[in-house]
């Protein structure tokens, strides 16, 4: 009987650890992005153009957003509440679908300006990806404010 109890407790601890890891994962990803950004800045020298500096600023804003999400999850865990529940999942889903829709127009705009600017293809793709991340963050903030009311 005691062995069964220990086995069940072990499984429970593993599950709890997985939930905790999900909350910590955001910080790991944010840290990796920051390290990559530092290496990128170091390798490209400190003589940066305005476009580069704007890109770094946008990346830092996105990392700050990820850290904010991670902190919210940790706060919930501290209060013995789930890091994600049905509302946060629904907000995430709505933000994803809305940002996908807006991103289509972003890429159309990028295609339109690609002929009119002197930017390289990789810079345009980079800007597009950053733009998608910013659109997602904005959608998430807006939907978190106005709520999800399907009926």
């Amino acid at each position: 009987m005691l062995e069964i109890n220990n086995f069940v407790l072990g499984i429970f601890n593993i599950l709890k650890e997985c939930i905790m890891k999900k909350a910590v994962l955001v910080f790991v990803v944010a840290g990796l992005v920051l390290v990559t950004l530092s290496v990128w800045i170091y390798q490209s020298g400190f003589n940066q153009s305005f476009t580069d500096i704007s890109m770094y600023a946008v990346i830092i804003v996105i990392v700050a957003f990820a850290v904010f999400i991670g902190l919210r999850r940790l706060k919930s865990l501290k209060l013995n509440q789930p890091p994600e529940d049905e509302l946060s999942k629904k907000i995430m889903q709505k933000a994803m679908s809305l940002s996908y829709l807006i991103s289509i127009y972003l890429w159309l705009f990028m295609m339109y300006i690609s002929d009119k600017t002197a930017l390289h293809t990789h810079s345009l793709i980079g800007l597009g990806i950053l733009g998608m991340a910013v659109i997602f963050a904005v959608c998430w903030i807006v939907i978190s404010r106005i709520g999800v009311k399907d009926v």
Binding site: P82, L87, I146, G147, K149, V151
Partner: peptide, 17 residues
Amino acid sequence: GVRRETIVFLEKGKYNP
């Protein structure tokens, strides 16, 4: 078993559970 924010949203009528 939900987050406090969910209760806040429910009370404000911003979310249908």
